[in-house]
């Protein structure tokens, strides 16, 4: 037992305690606040596990944007009375947890022969890094080796926003805008330029270190959401070409790259080696734009934004 394990132990205990209290909180508001705290602790855990990419994504999307989404959704719900936890409604989730935990526990206790022989499982990735056009392994996997997955993930966002548009069929009185709370406004004024800077940095940094389109897009979206809910940003009208164009931009560039590499180059998404780095940066830039706009619409979108 070394001293270095102490922070990890604290994190583990904290994670369980916060998860438990989020599940069993007496009011909805407490549960949501605890959920955001839970997201932040998960981000810390990822950072401790040496996965800063995941930590950034978790902090930005899991804690930040999801938290805003929950709070906004709660405003539309009736005030909840104290609820009792009913185990029967959660049997499926409980079974899932038991199976998952026992499966992982068995994996740790009894490593399969393959684990021992293939100790260094990312060796094919490491071997191919020099041809990938970037120097960070996660980016190389996401944007080059398994670029098709990332392309389809961008489509997931596009599908989600098109789906969300179906939920505003009737003209309804939208919520009264949040009271312009002066502290929030000044905080937003300070934070948004910083978010823009950090988002741009993460995007640029992605080719050589942790970062990249999803993290940068999520941060930019966080800035846009703050501007949108304080009323400093006018509604993003779906009918405007700029909005629809930026929603589709990442997908369009990715698709064009795929089709052009296929018809003129070596094959589907087979980047020419000399230009791989530039291409990846271009795709990431437009993808960041698309992700930022789509996440903003998903979190802060109202009828004004999506159906006019």
């Amino acid at each position: 037992m070394t001293v270095e394990l102490l922070p990890d132990l604290v994190l583990c205990v904290l994670l369980l305690v916060v998860a438990w209290s989020a599940l069993f909180a007496s009011t909805r508001r407490d549960a949501m606040a605890l959920f955001v705290a839970f997201g932040m602790i998960v981000a810390l855990v990822w950072a401790r596990l040496g996965a800063p990419d995941l930590a950034l994504a978790e902090a930005a999307i899991g804690a930040g944007l999801t938290g805003v989404l929950l709070l906004r959704a709660a405003r539309k719900l009736p005030v909840s009375s104290a609820r009792r936890f009913d185990y029967r409604r959660h049997l499926g989730a409980l079974t899932f947890i038991v199976v998952a935990v026992s499966g992982f526990a068995v994996s740790i206790i009894l490593p399969s022969p393959a684990d021992i022989t293939a100790n260094n499982i990312d060796s094919p990735v490491a071997a191919a890094m020099s041809d990938s056009g970037v120097s960070h392994q996660v980016t190389a996997v996401l944007l080059n080796f398994r670029a098709w997955d990332t392309f389809l993930e961008l489509l997931v966002l596009l599908f989600a926003i098109t789906g969300l548009r179906q939920l505003f069929p009737i003209e309804k009185e939208s919520l009264e805008p949040a009271r312009t709370w002066q502290l929030l406004v000044s905080w937003t004024r300070t934070l948004v330029p910083l978010l823009l800077l950090v988002g741009g940095y993460l995007l640029w940094r992605g080719s050589s270190g942790p970062g990249g389109a999803f993290q940068a897009g999520a941060l930019l979206a966080a800035g846009c959401v703050m501007l949108r809910i304080t009323g400093m940003l006018p509604p993003l009208h779906w009918s405007s070409f700029a909005v629809r164009g930026s929603v589709c931009a990442g997908t369009l560039l990715f698709l064009c790259t795929a089709v052009l590499t296929h018809s003129l180059g070596a094959g589907w998404l087979d980047y020419p080696e000399a230009h791989a780095g530039t291409l990846i940066l271009m795709i990431e830039t437009l993808a960041t734009l698309s992700i930022a706009i789509i996440l903003t619409l998903l979190v802060a979108g109202e009828r004004k934004d999506l159906c006019s």
Binding site: P124, V125, A128, N144, F145, R146, A147, W148, D149, A266, G267, W268, L269, D270, Y271
Partner: peptide, 13 residues
Amino acid sequence: TLNLGGWEDGLAI
């Protein structure tokens, strides 16, 4: 079969 991106089996989709 088509290895996307021209990478070898196991690395490519």
